[in-house]
Design a protein around this nucleic acid. Sequence first.
DNA 1: CTCAAATAATTCAACCAATAAACAAATCCG
DNA 2: CGGATTTGTTTATTGGTTGAATTATTTGAG
Lengths: 374, 374
Amino acid sequence: MMNASGSPVRQSSVRAHNLALVLQTVANSADQPSRAAIAASTGLTRATVSALVDDLIEGGLLVELEPAPRTGAGRPAAGLALAPDGPAGLGLEINVDYLAACVVDLTGAVRHRLVARADQRLLSPEAALAELGRLAAQARAAATIDGLTLAGAALAVPGLVTPDGLVRVAPNLGWQDVDAAQALRKVPALADLPVAVDNEANLAALGELRADHGGEPTFLYVSGEVGIGAGIVLDGELYRGGRGWSGEIGHVTVFPDGRPCRCGANGCLEQYAGQEAMAADADLAAAALGIALAAVVNLLDIDQIVLGGGYAPGFDRLRPGIEAELRRRVLTAELAPVTLRPATLGADAAMRGAADAVIRGVRDNPAAWSGRLG
Amino acid sequence: MMNASGSPVRQSSVRAHNLALVLQTVANSADQPSRAAIAASTGLTRATVSALVDDLIEGGLLVELEPAPRTGAGRPAAGLALAPDGPAGLGLEINVDYLAACVVDLTGAVRHRLVARADQRLLSPEAALAELGRLAAQARAAATIDGLTLAGAALAVPGLVTPDGLVRVAPNLGWQDVDAAQALRKVPALADLPVAVDNEANLAALGELRADHGGEPTFLYVSGEVGIGAGIVLDGELYRGGRGWSGEIGHVTVFPDGRPCRCGANGCLEQYAGQEAMAADADLAAAALGIALAAVVNLLDIDQIVLGGGYAPGFDRLRPGIEAELRRRVLTAELAPVTLRPATLGADAAMRGAADAVIRGVRDNPAAWSGRLG
DNA sequence: CTCAAATAATTCAACCAATAAACAAATCCG
DNA sequence: CGGATTTGTTTATTGGTTGAATTATTTGAG
């Protein structure tokens, strides 16, 4: 008999959930909250929060800040903060003309950053991944010197990626069916790390999500490089789709009988708002983008659109044209406006998002990170 | 300080979750499972399942079937099934040319069904809702005679609805800012029921979800009436969007400089695949639908599309044209096919989905239904 | 300078829910 | 009739949260 849906909850799941809740409360807090403040904020009792915080400190995820600010009568509170020397994430990116790696600690600070510029299309996938492996090993060595322990690695690729890390196709790299996850796992320095591979726009969207921390926003991140990709964040969660291939906005039709696209169709957005086309005619790029984005808003009722990649520098140039189409074509435009803004992270968005994805995994399930917590 | 995200989990939440798990396991099971079978399926122990099942029987949600089928050695199993006289859902629908109400019990069986044909555009919203209230009261009376207790009501409306039940605009009814939820709550026979209001396509999608019970499918339901709406189901959950206005596929642009639409834009899908346009040119309707659906698939990586409403009868006529566009315009068409199928529920889909939404609420949180379970 | 008030954090008994293992019930088969 | 087998229940145990009491550390008043 098939397990219908969901899985049983045992007491340990309760603990795991509440550990994550406490950790996230600290992470999303503007100041350094005390145990009592966390209790008030979460609804847990002070006793429970104390026990959970002890475990998180023991596990190296939280630190207690000794100097307590005076705030009135009573015993001063001991502030809590994410441990800067706790688990860190290794973010990797491979793109047309560069390789990059970075180490981001639990607090979100970028501790190391390495970029190697070179045209990857001239290399075989194996050679490119080997080179990336060397960069990753270098980043890990630097992290180790800093006393950081890596919790995992994530790689951003401009292409279609399956959940188990197989790159089915990355047109601009010229890749097809490359098992990037396996290649990276074979690098000795990474052999003991869980390695995830994901689409570049998806991870960049996660990077923007962290920058916009706190709430649980719904937004679309659009990345305009040679191709155009999008990451869809719904209620604070990245939506990947059934096979992990969501966000292919570059091949949404904007002019049904328009320019032929290398995908075989006609009138794909990419042919009007890709890097080359945008340079040739920015107004047309904006109009085409507006048409495609209006479709997204009509379908998903998204109220925030973030333009990243190559769109961020030219944002002011594109904005009026996009907004005109949105006003015209979004059914609910008068009832509720759509916010358009440039990405806050620059070219590093995908790499940062990759590293963030790793530490997000730790934050969402701290019990799994430290054996001592379970 | 703001509660960051999520809420604490206490022991009672564990029980609530596992109660729902057991109930859903019975609901999604093809046969009448025994306690032992549920234990094997869910991973809970037989002792725990026994205790939970006792509570669910006590609360009137499950019944034990005495006649046990012989299946080999050992003590015969006592089959369990959803209680047909447990809580039921009242589904309501208001559309251009009819009002409808139905009562669906916990097992999903339609126990009562009332339809009143009349052009609602000739009535004021107040008069139409009053008439619907009478129909609802009649349905409730019939349910009471059957010994059914209503758990709530849900109303399907062809328009934009806010989460608190305000109909912002329903173009084909000529409605604007009508508080449908409040109007129904004022009906004496419904005063003690929770009343939800939702978009017609959303609820119809939920109806299809139940018909396709068991898994946690991702699909798009498209309803082609005078206007065109869509319900988006992701991983077994209806996606409503930030304001509840998702699925407005009728106003996705298919021909940017095409026919003017009453929304003010040009080239909306509705102008090419709405009821009138489809009657005039089915091939054009199919092509336009294919273009818009390809956009959805590219964006959301959805692998199943269900055509309902007016599209269901003409499905075979439309299919080739739609599939041709999908093959051409979906980037991942070669990697993974998109399934196109007609809706299994007919014109009743939205009303059925509304009733299903109510009993879904009970199934998802049985502890809240019966005070005895807490 | 001492003591009361206030606030933070910990300790401890009680409780709730799931678990594991033993036990009882009901049937089949030799 | 008796062992094998499977279902369902009982009982002691464990893990985790709760609530109340307790300890810790500060401010402020007399």
